[in-house]
Amino acid sequence: MKAGVVRFPGSNCDRDCLHVLSDVMGADARFLWHKDHDLKGLDLVVLPGGFSYGDYLRCGAIAKFSPIMSEVMEFADKGGLVVGICNGFQVLTESGLLPGALIRNKGLKFICKYVNLRVDNADTRFTTEYKQSQVLTVPIAHGEGCYMVDDATWAEMLQYNQIVFRYCSPDGEVSELYNPNGARDNVAGIVNKAGNVLGMMPHPERCAEDLMQNKDGYGLFASVKNFLG
């Protein structure tokens, strides 16, 4: 697995993602500077969490104009794997690689805590290590994670099985009570139609090692590794 982690000015989970990819997964991983154009030899690009360009204007709105993003779009078009976590997910929706938008949490507050996620599609390149409907416990840390999308697109997303993770109860029940940010139908993570671009608000890299509260995030990286061989 050859991975690149994009560093926008204001990215702050870049080192975390690089650590998990190289030290935990043993991948050949490197940073990609936002002003660079070179994605040569990579088979995975990670857009990490943080506050790219200070999240001024709108989260992820300025990042989409950065030089590296035109390369990432081309890379994704050719089938390369792209994972956007938290702010990375926001960059992916802003740049049109994923449908919908992420707006202010319903409570208008930043929330950092472990939440339960149900794996609603264990048949993606990012989730084969999980079981269908398995409940994971993964941290979130965001102020703008309320996923919104228009009805027509939503219908299409359901048709193509694009919803990967949903916020749920410890038993896997999906309801408003377990929705931390007001996202449509408790959406926490989605893939594009082609299945090679994943965006998610929770942080799997924060629970991918033994020393953490749990290791539920490991499966995501392991799935990618398995897929890439």
């Binding site: 650590h19 930043f110 929330i111 950092c112 941290p139 509260q213």
Partner: peptide
């Protein structure tokens, strides 16, 4: 209070808020 703070970024926090002391691992 603490749920408004990102207390896990840098994935070093190995005792989370609520206990007597916070503990971070060192790279």
């Amino acid at each position: 209070v603490w749920e408004q703070y990102d207390h896990m970024v840098q994935i070093g926090s190995v005792v989370l808020p609520g206990s007597d002391a916070a503990v971070v691992r060192l790279p």
